[in-house]
Amino acid sequence: MLVLNNVEVIYDDVILVLRGLSLSVPEHKIVALLGSNGAGKSTTLKAVSGLLPSERGEVTDGSIVFKDQHITRMDAPARVKHGMSLVMEGRHVFEHLTIAENLVAGAYTRSGKESAADLDMVYEFFPKLADMRARVAGYLSGGEQQMLAIGRALMSRPQLLMLDEPSLGLAPLLVQEIFGYVKRLNAETGLTVLVIEQNARRALEIADHGYIMEQGRIVLEGPAADLRENPDVKEFYLGLGDEGGRKSFRDVKHYKRRKRWL
């Protein structure tokens, strides 16, 4: 459904962030893009969703193809109409509007009759939102706001849902609940999902395929089940090193060499 081929992104004409990044997202699958802060994960989503110009960024090389159509130069509203939706990091709900009003705002590309059916679908997936539909969004908890942000994104009936750090700032039980909703959406509706995460363990539990990203490049990819068992991924992203206790300086140097995927 989505293919990035050797994509390069530069900010302010000088800051190179993505360095020939390539990845693909198959239809009806969940793909996780993992990496530490500054790896370029959010920039990747902004490149796909068309939001780079608002931050003085630009795709300077490579191509982005969505549903067999080149969208590299397509503006953000057109990409939404074409079938993709982004839940940004930090949720960004309209705090002064009610839950119902937030959801309706997400359906601006659809007719009134269609959006009514979409509203029912969102309330079915997120019963908590249905019970609190008249509550002002600014008074919701972090987990409830994340549900609302995902629900609002679903109101445009996307074929590709992109999630930027959905676990950010949430307690572990809420993270598990949010990822459970994502897995259920994929299983029951066939929704294709690209999730950007630092919580590698949770992301790999629900994903079909994963990519590890460092310094603007993909350094490792494979089925999520394989990545969960990869010793380097365990060491650097899951906190499950093979050896317990404190490591010697020689070991640390060895691990650094491994982390460069050489």
Results as ranks from 00 to 15, higher is better:
R73A: 03
E89H: 01
K183D: 01
S115K: 02
L148G: 05
V93A: 03
A224I: 08
L129R: 00
L148V: 05
E124N: 02
E124K: 07
L174Y: 05
G62K: 08
L4G: 07
A134K: 15
F94H: 06
Y123C: 01
G216L: 05
E89S: 12
L45S: 07
F236A: 13
V193Q: 08
L170I: 10
F66Q: 12
L21C: 06
V136F: 00
E114Q: 15
A117D: 13
F94E: 06
V59A: 08
V80T: 13
S248H: 05
S115T: 14
H96I: 00
Y139Q: 10
H82K: 15
G57K: 14
I218M: 13
L51R: 14
L148H: 02
L238A: 05
Q146P: 12
S248R: 11
E95I: 00
I150M: 00
A130K: 14
R228D: 06
V175H: 00
G106V: 07
K247P: 13
V233G: 07
D68C: 02
L220C: 09
A130L: 04
R19A: 02
E205K: 07
P127H: 00
S111E: 11
H209R: 02
A107C: 08
T72Y: 08
L16C: 00
T192M: 02
G180M: 08
A105H: 11
S54W: 05
L163W: 03
P231F: 05
E235I: 01
A32F: 09
D242Y: 09
T98M: 05
V9Q: 02
I30G: 11
L23G: 12
G83Y: 10
H209D: 05
S24Y: 12
A187I: 01
L129F: 01
R56G: 03
L2N: 12
L204Q: 03
H92G: 03
Q145A: 05
L168N: 06
Q159A: 11
L86K: 13
R91L: 09
M1A: 05
Y255K: 07
Q215D: 11
M88R: 08
T98S: 15
K234S: 03
P77E: 05
E144H: 05
R260G: 09
K41T: 12
M74W: 04
F125T: 01
K253L: 15
A105L: 12
E197H: 02
V17R: 13
L148Y: 06
G216F: 04
R217Y: 02
E221V: 08
R133P: 06
G50S: 09
T109F: 13
L185C: 09
F94W: 06
V219E: 08
F94R: 06
R152D: 13
L227W: 14
V17A: 11
R73T: 09
S156R: 03
I212H: 04
P158Q: 03
R110E: 03
R260A: 13
Y11Q: 06
M84V: 14
A117N: 09
P26S: 08
D118M: 10
D13E: 15
I150R: 00
E235N: 13
N37H: 12
V93H: 08
Y108K: 09
